[in-house]
Amino acid sequence: MRTIELYPDDVYNQRTIRQGHPSDWVNREGGDYDLVVLGGGPAGLTAATTAAGGGHRVAMTEQRLTGGTCVNFGCTPSKALIRCARAVHEASRGAEFGFRLDAPPQTDFGSVMDRVRKMRSLSSSGDAVAVAEQAGAEVYLGHTRFTAPNAVEVEGRLLQFRTAVIATGSDPVVPPIEGLRTGEYLTNETVFSLTELPARLVVIGSGPMGCELAQAFRRLGSEVDLVSHPRTLLPHDEQEASELIRRRFEQEGIRLHLGFMAVRAGAGRLLAQGTDGTRELPYDALLLGTGRKANVEHLDLDAAGVHVARDGVEVDEYLCTSNPNIYAIGDATFPQKFTHAANATARLCIANALDGAHRPVRELVIPHCTYTDPEVAEVGLTSALR
Rank of each mutant, 00 (worst) to 15 (best):
Thr3Ile: 11
Glu5Asp: 10
Asp10Tyr: 04
Tyr12Glu: 10
Arg18Leu: 08
Asn27Lys: 12
Asp32Met: 09
Asp32Glu: 15
Asp34Gln: 05
Val37Leu: 02
Gly39Arg: 04
Gly44Asn: 00
Leu45Ala: 14
Leu45His: 02
Gly55Thr: 03
His56Tyr: 14
Ala59Val: 01
Thr61His: 01
Leu65Tyr: 07
Gly67Thr: 06
Gly68Trp: 04
Asn72Ile: 10
Pro77Leu: 03
Leu81Val: 08
Arg93Lys: 14
Asp114Tyr: 00
Met119Glu: 15
Ser123Asp: 12
Ser125Trp: 01
Gly126Cys: 11
Ala135Arg: 11
Ala137Ile: 08
Thr144Gly: 04
Thr144Pro: 01
Thr147Cys: 06
Glu153Cys: 06
Val173Phe: 00
Pro176Gln: 10
Gly183Ala: 05
Tyr185Cys: 01
Asn188Glu: 02
Glu189Met: 10
Pro198Leu: 02
Leu201Pro: 11
Leu213Pro: 06
Phe217Val: 06
His236Lys: 15
Asp237Leu: 15
Ser242Asn: 14
Arg246Cys: 11
Gly253Thr: 03
Gly253Trp: 03
Ile254Arg: 05
Leu258Asp: 00
Gly259Asn: 07
Ala262Gln: 05
Ala262Cys: 05
Ala265Ser: 09
Ala265Gln: 06
Gly268Met: 00
Gln273Leu: 08
Thr275Ala: 14
Gly277Asn: 12
Pro282Met: 00
Pro282Leu: 04
Tyr283Arg: 07
Ala285Phe: 00
Leu286Glu: 01
Gly289Trp: 02
Ala294Lys: 06
Gly305Asn: 11
Gly312Tyr: 03
Glu314Ile: 01
Glu314Phe: 12
Tyr318Val: 11
Leu319Cys: 14
Asp331Ile: 09
Asp331Pro: 12
Gln336His: 12
Gln336Asp: 11
Ala341Tyr: 08
Ala342His: 02
Ala344Val: 07
Cys349Glu: 08
Ala351Thr: 09
Ala353Val: 14
Ala353Ile: 12
Ala353Tyr: 10
Pro360Val: 04
Val361Gly: 13
Cys369Asn: 12
Thr370His: 00
Tyr371Gln: 08
Thr372Pro: 04
Val379Lys: 13
Leu381Val: 08
Thr382Glu: 14
Arg386Phe: 09
